[in-house]
Design a protein around this nucleic acid. Structure first.
Lengths: 347, 347
DNA sequence: TTGTAAGCGTTATCAA
DNA sequence: TTGATAACGCTTACAA
């Protein structure tokens, strides 16, 4: 048996005081004699005491933990977009004395213990398990009515980090797909482009619809938008992209807007293989931080950028507001007006 | 005031039984009458009861949480290597009914509350705050003696995910930089390469030393290894890489081994700009999963791959062993023997 | 300035 | 089969 870790009572006995006094001394309460405080601190040091934050959380009713639910699995952690957002969120939380707890949807149901589902459904409403003070939901799936009810009832303030869904009653950080696409449209219109391809994701998804809407608005009347919708999360598989690209090229666009920057890299390579010169024959414009492996590309992919670290901090700001009981509200990520890169040309 | 969330006692009163009985009913204890159980379950359902896992953890002495300490900050989350490893770890933990809690080193010290440091040092030994059953440390910094002592004393089993450090007394998942470099050397030797450049990181770091050692062993006697050491974590900045690359090229290697695959992408671009034909003039070999934006490259970067998701699962395996009190041990990541890609040629 | 004691929500032991 | 009761480690009125 390993010796149990020292508690506040261990120290109390070592110092000949009671646990209440030790607690006060450790927390810097002024109502304790200087000599006593020193004895207590010395003993704590000597015994290697570390406060049990779980017990403290139970007593105080708050844990200092923020739950993060990644609704489409762990791959989000190393995704260029969500990963950066999460990193920003984590940094902001940590700087404010809170930590992140990860909740992932359950891949396979564990049915070995019949009571287990009562404990952990492995779903969104796990955020109401009493361990976190607030939650952040990252991803696009709209929550089920039951989950929404459970979470609303639990009183845990939630922030949604969704592409574009509007979840009533919760704070949200919207990705701004409408606004950024509108900006892209304006930039291309100014260069004279009238036939513009759009490489997006999932036909008729909210993301796709708002992107197309923004692009059309930005381009202005009379312009033609050629839609491509990849029906799969694997955005960079050349085998999936090639037929879509070839179909798009047949419609001879003068520019292509690509929702994902990693995907844009792959398309650059496919275009080169086809002898399509960028930006002479075709202009390219994409979004997001430049993929790290792409920084020496010639020509350099033009991007509308977004400070995703700051986006994460913004999400944390909403979390704080929720914890303070302030009313819910929505923020939208800001995308830079100037596309940096060299894959844009006049038509 | 929002109504407090229902507890086990709320249910007990609603059903006219005691809290003990409710607890038993909910947890599937056979020593409870079927009729009672049904009444309890119905009430739990109706009231929207969710067990407070924090309280349960306090009582049972284990929380089902694994602490993850990222020793060089949140950027690790979206790093191609660590991010994937973490994702694998998270998935394995979740499948086993445990969740991950993130610990990041504190960016700036909070000195507003003098007692705060007693509570949260923002360092490695925070893993002993009583909230996690075990910890995973990801990164290369060797732990301070004080941290090691604190953690050993706390009894929290720890697994180190380090490039190559050996931390005595703790389980480790080593990256296998020695073995993979040896494999790379053998492959190049078989193709006749005798002058091989190595693009690594931090001169005289353990990582660098073991990589060079493995490469030399694999190449065999008489071969010449030309070392390049980037002295910065920003691996893909073209401005930093260009002078190093030019210096290397002056020594006319016939092949270059590049430790990081993102970096290799940038180097591919820089080589193309310099008119160096790959693999005709220079063979390239790197490690790790192919960066997603690079999948349509011609020629395709040759890589020794490693299933990092499985690596994460392996790390979780070590965590489990620690929780079960089994002795500590070290595992090493396995790198595939066959380099996939087309940037290798005979000399 | 310190001690006492209640309680956070749960589980577990012992009686009944 | 159920009820009382004592923890788990900590905080915090209230009393002394």
């Amino acid at each position: 048996m390993p010796p149990r870790r020292p508690t506040i009572l261990t120290i109390a006995q070592a110092c000949g005081v009671t646990d209440g006094t030790v607690s006060r001394a450790l927390r810097g309460d002024p109502r304790v004699r200087a000599a006593t405080r020193e004895r207590v601190l010395a003993a704590a040091q000597r015994l290697g005491y570390r406060p049990d934050l779980a017990a403290r959380a139970l007593k105080q009713g708050r844990s200092g933990l923020i739950g993060v639910f990644c609704d489409s699995g762990p791959w989000m952690l190393h995704n260029g977009y969500f990963g950066r957002l999460l990193a920003g969120l984590a940094a902001a939380a940590e700087a404010d004395g809170r930590r992140l707890m990860l909740y992932l949807p359950k891949v396979e149901a564990r049915s070995d213990n019949p009571a287990h589902d009562q404990v952990s459904l492995g779903g969104l409403s796990d955020l109401a398990d009493g361990r976190v003070d607030a939650g952040v939901v990252v991803g696009g799936h709209p929550p089920s009515a039951a989950d929404q009810r459970a979470l609303r009832q639990s009183g845990v303030p939630l922030v949604w980090l969704s592409p574009n869904e509007a979840v009533p009653g919760f704070s949200q950080l919207l990705s701004g797909s409408l606004e950024r696409s509108r900006q892209a449209g304006r930039i291309l219109a100014a260069l004279g482009h009238r036939r513009v391809g759009f490489f997006g994701l999932f036909k008729d998804s909210r993301f796709q619809r708002s992107s197309l809407k923004g692009l059309r608005e930005g381009l202005g009347p009379g312009a033609k938008v050629l839609e491509v919708a990849l029906e799969h999360w694997d955005l960079t598989d050349p085998l999936r992209l090639e037929p879509l690209l070839d179909a798009l090229l047949k419609q001879s666009p003068s520019a292509v807007v690509i929702a994902n920057a990693d995907q844009a890299s792959v398309l650059q390579d496919l275009l080169q293989q086809r002898g399509v010169r960028v930006p002479k024959d075709l202009s390219l414009l994409s979004f997001g931080p430049r993929p790290s492996g792409q920084r020496a590309r010639q020509p350099l992919l033009s991007l509308l950028d977004c400070a995703l670290d700051q986006g994460g901090a913004l999400a944390y700001q909403l979390v704080r507001e929720g914890l303070e009981g302030r009313p819910v509200r929505s923020l939208t990520l800001e995308w830079s007006a100037q596309p940096q890169g060299t894959t844009l040309a006049k038509v």
